[in-house]
């Protein structure tokens, strides 16, 4: 089944790799910088040091923002997944034109430019006393992440026979039990994917965060941003490198699991 590849194919492959390299290379510049022994941003000159990683992991300067980001991210993900998933399921049940119109409304936070959302939330949170509170930031990020959960869950519901809901009810399940036993298990992939999106959006969100918090909530992107403005500390490069590594590990695990599943599926 081997077929000879045309020269055009090889040209295309080369071009693709050049583009990929062009896009990804700047990211990896942070790796050597993070290993510099000097106190300022520079390429290491034959000597390497982990001192900047030490800075990241000791004291509150970086661990504090890391903790804040994790807390905000998890909180926002949970709320976005619950609200986005519930909205998608509810509108799927209602159906028709009304559902489509409300569906567009649910996507608004994704369509409206972030700076507009930022301004609106900043004013609203001051009035409601949520400005610069963890709850305020979590809610802001949840609003931004919700449309993604809504979209992925709606897509998962597309292929589901609406009659299974009625079937479950005829068998004795109340409306909430139907959601738990029948709908959620069938859209789990959509909920998880949407949740991951929501978490990633919260994790590197900066614009809205700048507008709804000042001192008491200090997320990681905010810390990086203010650090780069004030003093160029290679610790920023160390944090970036850690995030790259974490992403690569997660992606590899995900791919490995998929491959494994395909393999076992094929042998069955």
């Amino acid at each position: 089944m081997q077929s000879r590849r045309s020269p055009g194919f090889w040209l295309l492959i080369t071009l693709v790799w050049i583009v990929v390299g062009f896009l990804l290379a700047p990211m990896f510049i942070t790796v050597p910088i993070s290993l510099t022994p000097t106190r300022f941003v520079s390429m290491p000159d034959g000597e390497y040091s982990l001192r900047h990683y030490e800075t990241v992991f000791t004291g509150d300067a970086w661990l504090g923002p890391l903790g804040d980001s994790a807390m905000v991210g998890i909180g926002a993900t949970l709320i976005a997944t619950f609200v986005g998933g519930a909205a998608a399921i509810g509108l799927w049940r209602i159906g028709g034109r009304a559902a489509r119109i409300i569906g567009v409304l649910a996507l608004m936070p994704m369509i409206v430019p972030p700076i507009v959302t930022a301004l609106a939330l900043s004013r609203a949170w001051v009035t409601l006393g949520l400005f610069d509170t963890v709850i305020g930031v979590i809610l802001s990020h949840a609003i931004l992440g919700m449309p993604f959960v809504f979209m992925t869950t709606s897509a998962a519901l597309e292929g589901l026979d609406p009659r299974i809901v009625e079937a479950a009810r005829s068998l004795g399940a109340g409306p909430f039990r139907v959601v738990r036993d029948v709908i959620v298990p069938n859209v789990r992939a959509g909920l998880v994917t949407g949740g991951l999106f929501a978490f990633m959006i919260s994790w590197d969100e900066i614009i809205v965060t700048l507008f709804v918090s000042s001192r008491s909530v200090f997320t990681l992107p905010r810390k990086i941003w203010s650090d780069i403005r004030d003093n160029l500390d290679p610790a920023v490069a160390a944090v970036s490198t850690l995030m790259i590594v974490a992403t690569l590990v997660a992606a590899t695990l995900y791919l490995a699991r998929d491959l494994l599943r395909a393999r076992t599926g094929a042998t069955r």
Partner: peptide, 20 residues
Amino acid sequence: LAPEKRDFGVVFQGYALFPH
């Protein structure tokens, strides 16, 4: 009475089996 309280067996068009 809500459908779940009626205790009727129903076979739906397209069968509506739970895929999971």
